[in-house]
Amino acid sequence: MGMSVTISAAAENDAEQILKLQYLCYQSEAELHGDYTIEPLTQTLDDLRAELGRGCVLVARLGEEVVGSVRATVDAEGTAVITGLIVHPRLRRHGLGGRLLAGIEERLAADWDAKRFRLATGRRGEGNARLYRKWGYARTGADAAGRNLTVVTLEKEAGPAGAPALVTTA
């Protein structure tokens, strides 16, 4: 019998596994944009630990292994900035990214009083953008973030009682 993936709050001792997974996951993004200096590939363990202490962080586990993660902070106006949504390459396209996104939206709305959600992705990351559109995010802007990288910002309002909005199209 196989193990199922569980999603829970990250613990302090998850930082090293998250950083290793982040490095693995962002290789394809760096290759896509021709820029291996992007922040997820240059972040130190100390910087990640500090970031984890400032916000809401979820991890997806397969047994003891961290196979996915997402993190966010909420500002004084109730805008949650979601970052670092990562899923191990061998588990992609099985709904885990959507589960992590829904989980953090729910937690942010319920425990952090988030009123809207904001995230960003590289312009060439169509798979990421497709996932975000599916979950109700709409493009609100784009900014150059390097010589080959344009970052697209997407947002959505929190649903009733923080319910995540899954958009289905025919």
Rank of each mutant, 00 (worst) to 15 (best):
T6Y: 02
T6W: 02
S8E: 14
A9Q: 12
A10I: 04
N13C: 03
D14N: 12
Q17V: 02
Y23T: 15
L24E: 11
C25Q: 01
Q27L: 12
S28D: 11
E31K: 03
G34Y: 04
Y36A: 09
Q43E: 15
A50C: 08
A50V: 13
L52Q: 06
G55A: 07
V57K: 00
V59S: 11
V67C: 06
G68C: 10
T73I: 09
T73V: 12
A76M: 08
E77T: 14
G78E: 08
T79V: 11
A80E: 05
T83C: 07
L85Y: 03
H88D: 13
P89I: 15
R92H: 06
H94N: 11
L96N: 01
G97I: 06
L100Q: 00
L100H: 02
A102T: 04
G103S: 06
E105D: 10
L108A: 09
A109Y: 04
A109I: 01
A110Q: 15
L119E: 09
A120W: 00
A120P: 00
E126F: 14
A129V: 05
R130E: 09
R133T: 05
R133H: 13
Y137A: 03
T140R: 08
G141W: 06
D143F: 14
A144H: 02
A145S: 14
G146R: 12
N148Y: 05
N148T: 14
L149P: 03
L154H: 10
E155I: 07
E155T: 13
E155Q: 13
K156G: 06
E157T: 04
A161E: 09
G162K: 07
A163V: 10
A165D: 03
V167C: 07
T168A: 14
T168C: 12
